[in-house]
Every structure is written in C-alpha cells, then in structure tokens.
Simulated scan of single mutants.
Amino acid sequence: MVTGSRVRAAKGQGGLLRDQLLDIAGQLLESGGADALTIRAVATSAGVSPPAVYLHFASKRELVHATCLRVWDSLFIELEAVSREIQDPVTALYETCVTYIAFGLRHPAQYRLVMAGEATEASRQNEEACFRYFRDKVAACLDAGVPVRSKTETARVVCAGVHGAVSLLIHQDRDVWPADSDRYVRRAASSAVHGALLTASHTFTPSMANVPQSR
C-alpha cells in the first residue's frame, strides 16, 4: 500500500507536486495494476483532495498516460546508454533487444497498458518511437555490410520477436516465469536478432539440416 503525508506545493512548485503524484501513481500501478490507479487513490496516498490531482491531470486516462510515458522515457535513456559504446552494429542491435525485453519484464503493468491496454496515446507515441529506434539499428547493420533487403520489414521482425518475448511472460503469473530470467532475456534477444538478420536477404526454410547437431 502506498502512503504519504499531505503534500503542499508552494507557489511556483506545481511541477514538484505533479512529479510527486506521478511517483505515487507509478507505485500504485506497480503494486496493484491498472485497477489500483485511480484519481482518488493517488489523492489519498498523497494526502491531498481529488481536485488537487485534477489540477494536473484532467482524467484518469491522462494520469495513466503520463505515468506510462514517464517510465517509457527511461527506456530510451537505457537504450542509448547500452549501445553508445558498442562499435559492432549487430552487437548493438542485440544489446538493444536485451535492454528492451528486460525493461518490459521490470515494468509489466506499464508495458501492458501501453502495448495492449487503455493508454492509447502513450501506445501511439511509444510504438512509433520504438520502431524507429529498431529500424535505425537495422540500418546501421545494413551500412556495415549485413545483407538486408528491407530495413522496415526486418525491423518489424525484430520488434515482433522482442514484443513477443515480453508479452509471453507478463500475461502470466510470476511464479511460472523462467527461473533464470537473464538467460531467457538473452536467448530471446539472440533469437530476435539473428533470426531477423538471417532471413533479411532471402527466404529461409528451417529444417534439421540447418540445426547444429550435438555430439
């Protein structure tokens, strides 16, 4: 349960109260899911009246959008940090996928709301931004000589892989998640990248002849 003392914003500090409200909204979302995130619950936890929350957020939907977008903004900071020093573009794409999947698993409630829930404006903004980010990484692979027939199609395949890896788990109870989540994240990222790039220049039909055999 999220609790807090009464928040009084001094003159000119409305932005501070807004950030505090978003902190509380994020905690409610993480602990109780979308049903727990209401204007009244945020107001009660902040020690203010619901009208004080409405001064910053016109509706619950706007509050949900702001809460989700705030977390998703941190994703792009993480993506930039993880790939900034990597020279090899395929490795950079792989680490981008690892970061994306790990982010989704750390923030399942926000991920569900943005990608499959009511946060429609947050969904539009983040889906477009994420797709552009992955397409830029695929373009870097093409520039480095990786045979990619279509940057857009290949980026879609990569996005399908990482989104599927996140969605498979966040719609299940945590007690059925893989015991070694880091291994799962890295295998899923490797599958998304290498599968997409392997088929980026030609049609590839899987068969036992293409699978390494154990000895």
Rank of each mutant, 00 (worst) to 15 (best):
P51S: 08
S49T: 04
E153A: 12
I101N: 05
V158T: 14
H56R: 05
I24T: 09
S31E: 00
L37S: 11
P147W: 06
A139L: 04
S59A: 04
D23H: 03
V114D: 15
L142E: 05
F57R: 00
W72M: 06
F131M: 10
C159I: 08
A25P: 14
I86E: 05
F57Y: 09
E80I: 08
D23V: 08
S45P: 15
D35C: 08
L113G: 01
V157Y: 09
S59L: 12
A25L: 05
A58C: 15
G117M: 15
V90L: 06
P50V: 14
R84I: 13
L93Q: 04
L79K: 04
S123L: 11
I77W: 08
F103W: 01
N126Q: 10
E78M: 03
V114E: 14
T96I: 09
A41D: 15
A129F: 02
V157T: 08
R70F: 06
G15N: 08
V138K: 13
D35Q: 14
P108V: 01
A66I: 04
V71I: 03
V98Y: 01
I86T: 13
G15R: 07
L142V: 11
R61H: 14
V48T: 07
F134K: 10
R135E: 08
C130G: 04
I86Y: 05
M115Y: 06
L21M: 15
S150Q: 02
L105N: 02
R124H: 07
V98L: 05
C130P: 07
E118D: 08
H56A: 11
S45K: 09
V148G: 11
Y100F: 13
A66M: 09
T44P: 10
A109S: 02
E80N: 07
R124F: 01
A34H: 03
L93S: 11
W72N: 12
T154W: 04
S31G: 15
R40E: 03
P89F: 12
A34M: 10
I86S: 04
Y111M: 05
T120F: 12
L29N: 15
R84F: 14
Q110F: 00
E153P: 15
V148I: 08
G104A: 15
R112V: 04
A140V: 14
R156Q: 04
V82A: 13
V42Q: 01
V82T: 08
N126V: 10
W72L: 01
E121N: 09
G32R: 00
V157F: 09
C97M: 02
R132I: 15
G104S: 02
D73E: 03
L93R: 01
P108W: 00
V71Y: 01
L142C: 06
